[in-house]
């Protein structure tokens, strides 16, 4: 069980809360307090819109421990409209094929149980095809 880690990461995981660099205005995700663009301190909280597009993706049938229940599933690099690229599971794809450039939006879903059905439920961002 990794309760402290999940607790520390909840804000960024539940709602894509990152940072904005006060110097060069770069949007930063995941938050790291130092701007990867200009190297200066960046601690201003920034709420990402959750909109983006599939930059690239792959499909997993042999899922890592803890994720077998969702297999097969697609993992994508999602380019957020504010700039950063995040890695996330795609969900609610239905019968639509995943395509590079596909517009997607962030939803908060169950990622997995920490341990077994007795452990805490880990929630976090995934992306799905844009609803409207």
């Amino acid at each position: 069980m990794e309760t402290p880690r999940h607790w520390r990461l909840k804000k960024q995981r539940y709602a894509l809360v990152g940072e904005e660099c006060p110097h060069c205005k770069a949007k930063i995700f995941p938050p790291r307090d130092v701007c990867p663009e200009c190297g200066l301190e960046a601690k201003t909280v920034y709420h990402f819109s959750g909109k983006g597009e599939v930059y690239s993706y792959t499909s997993l049938t042999d899922a890592p421990a803890g994720f077998q229940a969702s297999a097969p599933y697609a993992i994508a690099l999602v380019k957020l409209e504010e700039g950063p690229i995040v890695t996330a599971q795609l969900t609610d794809i239905g019968n639509e094929p995943v395509k590079i450039g596909m517009p997607v939006e962030m939803v908060t879903r169950k990622l997995r149980d920490d341990g077994d059905e007795r452990g805490m439920i880990i929630y976090g961002y995934k992306f799905r095809p844009v609803l409207s």
Binding site: S70, T91, D92, V107, T108, R109, K110, L111, Y123
Partner: peptide, 13 residues
Amino acid sequence: PGPDEDTITMSIE
């Protein structure tokens, strides 16, 4: 609900 949905995730949306 999909396998990654529950009352919490649906309430969030």
